[in-house]
């Protein structure tokens, strides 16, 4: 039996109010939200410039590009799988698109479509090895991480690709065009990030697919027994993750006017950190898009804040690591408390 804290003969209406507040507080996003607010107010107090439109705009530029990878990764991790190859796909996609375009073989638009398709193919390969050959996704995507990075290096012989010819192209404007809103300057990627966050939140929380994703990670045996196609669900998520990593890499290359075969190195770990800090269980089954959005901003605004208050940039990872440790400890504690209540 559930131990419900409820007096047998008590008056029900006054009892319900605090319980609703409590339920709100026990939502998984509350921890990350508090952390983000604390962080912003701390940095803002020490360095008021931190909250200036200029700095906020600067932080947003790269944040949403990484965020575009973290969003689908959230669904993949809720379904119980990892993708370590996203950083390589990020770098590879940009150089593939620019190589195709610069060689004169295709138009920019066609190069973009081909690159997304190739990235989808990488996702399919990841998914196929995980669901059909039944190798752990950690190992499979470690393999594709190396293969894809190697392909980017070989394709370019290690040299960055020219990207400046993108100026004036409509595709470049749609993906990474710059917009000025008051004293803020933002890129179109912010818009795409918001769209992706809303759509994926809707899919996870409201749709049948969302139910399947959570079940696939929570208890695959049970999901299978209920007729859920666990393999196909994971496959779709691997493809989605790879394609959004490619879109992110291409967008970033247009914004920074650089397509370097080495770019994106290490992003996979930062993305996983964002997702985990946002409250998604490493073991799968549980997590939210709102949490990940908070996790994305926690890490990137911390990066900027540390630089602004004069902490050497190289010390950034010390803080990332410490925050991950704190968040997983908090999660473990919440889990234990929930178990004890059950």
């Amino acid at each position: 039996m559930l131990k419900l804290v409820k007096a047998e003969a008590g008056s029900p209406p006054p009892v319900r109010r605090p319980s609703r507040l409590l339920r709100l507080l026990s939502r998984p996003e509350v921890g990350p939200l508090i952390l983000l607010v604390l962080e912003l107010s701390a940095f803002g107090t020490i360095r008021p410039l931190y909250l200036s439109p200029f700095n906020i705009s600067n932080v947003l530029d790269f944040t949403v590009e990484l965020g575009l990878i973290a969003l689908p990764t959230t669904l993949l991790m809720i379904a119980g799988e990892f993708d370590l190859s996203v950083g390589s796909v990020f770098g590879f996609s940009a150089v593939l698109m620019w190589t195709l375009f610069n060689s004169g073989a295709t138009s920019l638009g066609l190069a973009f479509v081909i690159t997304l398709a190739v990235a989808g193919g990488i996702g399919l390969i990841n998914g196929w090895f995980v669901t059909q050959v039944r190798v752990s996704s950690f190992l499979v995507t470690l393999g594709t991480l190396l293969v894809v990075r190697g392909a980017a290096l070989y394709l370019t012989q290690g040299f960055p690709q020219r990207t400046w010819s993108a100026a004036g192209s409509r595709l470049a404007a749609v993906l990474a065009g710059e917009i000025h809103i008051g004293r803020f300057h933002v890129y179109m990627s912010l818009f795409w990030f918001i769209v992706a966050a809303i759509v994926l939140h809707y899919v996870l929380a409201e749709t049948k697919a969302g139910n399947w994703i959570q079940a696939a990670g929570g208890n695959p045996g049970s999901a299978l027994a209920r007729g859920v196609n666990v393999g196909r669900t994971k496959m779709v998520l691997f493809v989605l993750t790879a394609m959004l990593a490619a879109a992110s890499g291409i967008t970033s290359s247009i914004r920074t006017s650089a397509a370097n075969p080495n770019s994106g190195t290490g992003y996979e770990l930062e993305v996983i950190a964002m997702v985990v800090i946002g409250g998604t269980a490493l073991t799968g089954g549980r997590g939210t898009i709102i949490g990940t959005v908070l996790g994305i901003f926690i890490l990137r605004s911390m990066h900027s804040g540390l630089v602004m208050i004069g902490v050497p940039g190289l010390a950034y990872e010390i803080f990332v690591g410490a925050i991950i440790l704190a968040m997983v400890a908090l999660q473990a504690w919440l889990d234990r408390r929930q178990q004890a209540e059950g």
């Binding site: 409201e206 049948k208 139910n211 990670g217 929570g218």
Partner: peptide, 27 residues
């Protein structure tokens, strides 16, 4: 059952009823 999911979601897992508004099979 899937322990992380609610009673409701478990009851209908694999046979989710879809509403008239079918954007991505909303339950």
């Amino acid at each position: 059952l899937v322990p992380q999911l609610s009673i409701t979601r478990n009851l209908f897992l694999g046979r989710e009823p879809i509403k008239g508004f079918r954007l991505f099979n909303r339950m």
